[in-house]
Write a protein that binds this DNA or RNA. Structure first.
Length: 320
DNA sequence: CAATCGTGGAT
DNA sequence: TATCCAAGATT
């Protein structure tokens, strides 16, 4: 049976994140935190840095908290209900770990399974309202002898069916082993019915890149909750609905310095808004004592992508 | 229940 | 280029 720690870690990384993006990061994470004990013993900053670029940073905070809970308990939870009580473990991940790592007859319902079931039973109720219906229908797999015999492989097979045959667009129904019992085959490409999309608003920010004489940059730290919670950042203004004038932005600078505007802007898309950032930079020859100065290459490694874009903007403008 | 929470790749 | 969407959880 697979190592519960590795199954748990991979399932958390795979939440809303593609296999291609996760694969190298999973190996790197395991190299740095090989066991749940090692993860529990690590400082939070190290875990957040290792997660940089993967997105949904609440996952890393919860993963770390859960590791400490497991280490304190001295053992992994024995079943899905036990896993469900840990931070960052919802219905899907609890079922996936129980099925894959513990061999227990649970049915993890992810986006793939929802799509397969919506088509198999021709569910036309729109998402996300249909989630309850789809989850209930997916529980029907619990009586399948193949599922009882090999719950982990059954779950993996369901994921693979959704990823390679029962795909969101252009499903390959002709190749599907379940096509004969599929009530939604004729309308498969239109299921599940998605809610209408809402346009993402634009927000604006201004940030301040302080460089010392040794190629180091001054980093800040985000609050431990909410957007990018717990991550390093490049200090700046709030992200507001209206652009910042130079005067307004400079009044928000973390300290007085000969700030100069970097030409151009940096753009970044979040799930629910788009961001336009301006950048000011200054050479600061007297670093403060309790401040987080990092070489540019290191900063680029530990900053979330939104702030890496500012480093790219600066480099393109010849600022270094 | 609806909103929040990142990012990169595919189309 | 814009949109979609990915092995979701939390509030």
């Amino acid at each position: 049976m697979p190592d519960p720690y590795q199954v748990w870690l991979s399932e958390v990384m795979l939440q809303q994140t593609t296999v291609a993006a996760v694969a190298p990061r999973f190996q790197r994470f395991l190299g740095r935190f090989p066991t749940v004990a090692a993860l529990a013993a690590a400082p939070a900053e190290a875990v957040m840095e290792e997660w940089a670029g993967l997105g949904y940073y609440a996952r890393a905070r919860a993963l770390h908290a859960a590791a400490r809970a497991i280490a304190a308990a001295g053992a992994f939870p024995p079943d899905a209900a036990g896993w469900r009580e840990l931070p960052g473990i919802g219905p899907y991940t609890a079922a996936a770990v129980a099925a894959i790592a513990l061999g227990q007859p649970e049915v993890p319902v992810d986006g793939n399974v929802e799509r397969v079931v919506a088509r198999l039973f021709a569910v036309t109720e729109p998402m996300p309202r249909a989630k309850k219906t789809l989850a209930a229908l997916a529980q029907g797999f619990s009586s399948d002898p193949a599922m009882r015999a090999r719950p982990g492989d059954f779950a993996q097979a369901l994921f693979d069916l959704g990823a390679t045959i029962c795909t969101p667009k252009n499903p390959a129904c002709a190749l599907c082993p379940w096509r004969e019992g599929c009530a939604g085959q004729a309308m498969a490409a239109d299921l599940p019915v998605r809610a209408e999309k809402v346009p993402r608003p634009m927000r604006h920010g201004a940030h301040f890149l302080a460089l010392d004489g040794a190629g180091r940059v001054l980093l800040g730290r985000r609050p431990g909750h909410g957007l990018l919670g717990g991550m390093a950042d490049i200090p700046g203004t709030a992200w507001t609905g209206a652009p910042w004038t130079d005067a307004e932005a400079l009044a928000e600078a973390p300290f007085a310095a000969p700030w100069a505007a970097v030409p151009g802007v940096a753009l970044h898309g979040f799930t629910h808004f788009q961001l336009t950032m301006r950048l000011f930079w200054a050479r600061v020859e007297i670093p403060g004592t309790n401040q987080d100065w990092r070489p540019l290459a290191e900063a680029a490694r530990i900053l979330p992508t939104v702030f890496r874009r500012l480093l790219v903007l600066a480099e393109g403008a010849g600022v270094r």
